[in-house]
C-alpha cells in the first residue's frame, strides 16, 4: 500500500521541504556563480539591510493595509451572499444563480485583470460613461489611492460566489427545530438570524478566518504583480512583490530571501496562533482533521 504513496511523498519532500534549505541564502552574500557552498556567510546583515530600507517598510505597510481591507470588506461578502441564496425558495432560481457566481473562481488572474481593464481602465466603460456625463474621466486602475479597493473588488468578483459553497453547506447542518422553536417564542427573522443562524455558522466562520490568516501576508500575489506597475511601487509593492523584484529581477538574493523568510515565519506563526486561540474559545480549529 505504502509503495503507491511514495511518488507523492517524494514530491512533498523535494518541492516543499528541500527548498527550506534554500533559506541559507538569507544568511549569505549569495552569488549564483559561487552557489550555496562558496558564497560568504554574513549572519544577519541581510536582515538589517532590509530593515534600513524605506522600500521594505513601505511594502510591509501596503501588505498590512491591503490585508485588513480585504479581511473587513471581502470576508463577510460570501456569508451575506450565502444567507441570501439560502433564503431563495425556488430551487431552480438558486441553482441558476449558483452556476453563475461560481464560475469566476476558475478564471485566472491575467484574464480577470484584463477584463477589469476593459471596464474600469483608462479607455474602459466607466471613464467613457463618466465622460459622456460631463464628469472627469476617472481611471481607477492607475489610482494609487484606490489600489487596495480595486484589489478587494476584484477578489469579490472572483471568489465571493465560490466562498458561499462552504457557508451554504454549514447552513444545512443547522437544526430546523431551532428555527421553529425560536419562531414560536416570537423571534422575528432578524432575531432568528442573530440567535440561531450566526451561532450555527460560528465554527465554519472561525475555520475560514484561521485559514485566511495564514494567507494574510500573501494578499493575492499574482493579482498584485499584474497591476503593480500601473500604480507604481509606492502603493503596489507588497512583501511578495518586493521579494520578486529585489531577488529575481535585481539579483539581490540575500536580502530578498531574508524578507521572504520573515514573511514565511510570521505567516506560519499567525495560523498556529489563531488555531490556538480558537481552541481556547472552545472551537475545533483546523488540525484534528488528519487523524479523524
Amino acid at each position: 500500500m505504502l509503495l503507491l504513496a511514495l511518488p507523492g511523498l517524494a514530491y512533498f519532500v523535494v518541492f516543499h521541504y528541500v527548498p527550506l534549505l534554500g533559506y541559507m541564502v538569507a544568511f549569505q552574500d549569495y552569488q549564483p556563480y559561487l552557489g550555496y557552498m562558496h558564497s560568504v556567510w554574513v549572519g544577519f546583515t541581510n536582515f538589517t539591510t532590509a530593515f534600513a530600507q524605506p522600500a521594505f517598510w513601505s511594502a510591509v505597510g501596503n501588505t498590512l493595509q491591503i490585508a485588513v481591507i480585504q479581511l473587513v470588506f471581502f470576508f463577510p461578502v460570501p456569508i451575506g451572499l450565502a444567507l441570501l441564496l439560502n433564503s431563495v425558495v425556488s430551487e431552480r432560481l438558486r441553482r441558476f444563480v449558483q452556476s453563475v457566481v461560481y464560475l469566476p473562481h476558475f478564471i485566472g488572474w491575467v484574464i480577470i485583470v484584463s477584463i477589469f481593464q476593459q471596464i474600469l481602465g483608462g479607455a474602459g466603460l466607466l471613464p467613457d460613461v463618466l465622460g459622456s456625463l460631463g464628469l472627469p474621466r476617472y481611471d481607477m486602475m492607475s489610482d494609487p489611492e484606490a489600489f487596495p479597493w480595486l484589489l478587494t473588488l476584484q477578489m469579490v468578483w472572483k471568489d465571493a460566489g465560490w466562498g458561499t459553497i462552504i457557508i451554504l453547506a454549514a447552513l444545512l447542518t443547522i437544526d430546523r427545530q431551532s428555527y421553529e422553536a425560536a419562531a414560536i417564542d416570537g423571534a422575528g427573522p432578524a432575531r432568528r438570524l442573530w440567535h440561531v443562524t450566526l451561532p450555527g455558522l460560528a465554527p465554519v466562520i472561525i475555520l475560514l478566518l484561521i485559514l485566511n490568516l495564514g494567507q494574510v501576508l500573501s494578499v493575492g500575489f499574482e493579482q498584485i504583480l499584474l497591476q503593480r506597475d500601473a500604480v507604481g511601487p509606492g502603493a503596489g509593492e507588497v512583501l511578495d512583490t518586493y521579494v520578486y523584484y529585489h531577488g529575481i529581477k535585481d539579483n539581490d538574493w540575500g536580502v530578498a530571501a531574508a524578507v521572504g523568510l520573515i514573511k514565511a515565519v510570521i505567516g506560519t506563526a499567525l495560523v498556529l496562533g489563531a488555531n490556538k486561540v480558537a481552541h481556547r474559545l472552545g472551537h475545533e480549529g483546523v488540525y484534528r482533521g488528519a487523524d479523524r
Binding site: 527548498p19 530578498a256 530571501a257 521572504g260
Partner: peptide, 17 residues
Amino acid sequence: ALFTMLFNPGIIPNFLL
C-alpha cells in the same frame, strides 16, 4: 504532506531549487 499547508517555501528558495 499536510504540514506543507502551513508554510510556503517562498519565491527565492523555489526558484533556486
